[in-house]
């Protein structure tokens, strides 16, 4: 090791400061959820849990929560099916170049969300509108599924690459057909990766706002409800509670997914999961 004692000390301090920077704002918004006053002044003078019951009984919040859950379930279901198929296809067959795949996968990640959103809006208005599809749950789900597919794909393909191809071959040698091998050999190995990918897809869809604004029309998911309600200062205490809820609701599935994605033993490196769609 080349790091001197001083360097290590500085690195430790830098790491600590960065963590404070990362978690500070989340902590602040968590505290504001317990702010008794309507005004958002710091320091908070009086703490209370009164806004939690107000938020829980708010019709707008409840409707938005229902829509968010429905959209996330729909998008996750589509993403699981298509993402798994895609990863099996890429893992088992060499059908086109690696370069092309990486570029095709990276492009949707790298293009700004507003471009994706605007593109989907233009398609819904120009192409789907004339055949009778209008903005609503279906268009929200389609938009979300587009990038949720990539999350599932990444998780499953990482797992397939780590499992041994010899098991496949052994299964085939023992007389199993393609579907039997998939069902009895591949699936049990992929199960936790599927669950992890599904959880991440759910979290991604549940949180999405950039693209959803363009695909939801007059409907409001929970993040869109926040976006619309920010303009009304009197409602901000409820927004704070919903904001805290959203942070907790997205962190829990991601934490579980991260534990599941590692698979095989505590010593194995866990690949960090980056949401491969612009937030």
């Amino acid at each position: 090791m080349v790091e001197s004692r001083l360097t290590r000390w500085l690195l430790r301090a830098g790491t600590g400061l960065t963590l404070v920077f990362i978690y500070g704002p989340l902590l602040v918004i968590g505290l504001y959820a317990f702010n008794r006053n309507v005004t958002q002044k710091w320091p908070i003078e009086e703490y209370s849990t009164r806004w939690f019951s107000v938020a829980f009984n708010d019709d707008g919040v409840r409707e938005a929560l229902t829509l968010s859950i429905l959209a996330a379930l729909g998008a996750t279901a589509i993403a699981l099916v298509l993402g798994t198929l895609a990863s099996l296809a890429v893992a088992r067959y060499q059908f086109f170049g690696r370069e092309v795949i990486t570029f095709a996968v990276v492009l949707p990640i790298a293009l700004p969300g507003i471009v994706t959103g605007l593109a989907l809006q233009a398609t819904i208005v120009d192409v789907l509108g004339p055949i009778g599809v209008s903005f609503g749950l279906a268009t929200i789900i389609v938009g979300h599924a587009t990038f949720c597919v990539v999350v599932v794909y990444n998780n499953v393909i990482a797992r397939i690459r780590r499992t041994s191809g010899a098991l496949d071959e052994a299964s085939a040698d023992l007389g199993a057909d393609y579907w039997q091998t998939t069902r009895y050999v591949m699936f049990p190995q992929m199960r936790t990766a599927l669950l992890a990918g599904g959880l991440l897809a759910f979290a991604l869809s549940f949180d999405e706002v950039v693209v959803t604004i363009f695909t939801s029309g007059a409907q409001q998911t929970l993040p869109i409800w926040i976006f619309a309600t920010l303009a009304r200062p009197a409602q901000l205490p409820i927004v704070n509670v919903v904001a805290l809820f959203l942070v907790v609701a997205s962190i829990i599935p991601v934490y579980i997914a991260q534990r599941l994605a590692g698979g095989g033993g505590p010593d194995e490196e866990r690949a960090p999961t980056i949401p491969t769609a612009a937030p």
């Binding site: 706002v209 950039v210 926040i226 997205s250 937030p279």
Partner: peptide
Amino acid sequence: VLLPLWANYLV
């Protein structure tokens, strides 16, 4: 580092 990355961006 990962968890806050997934926390809602609007929030």
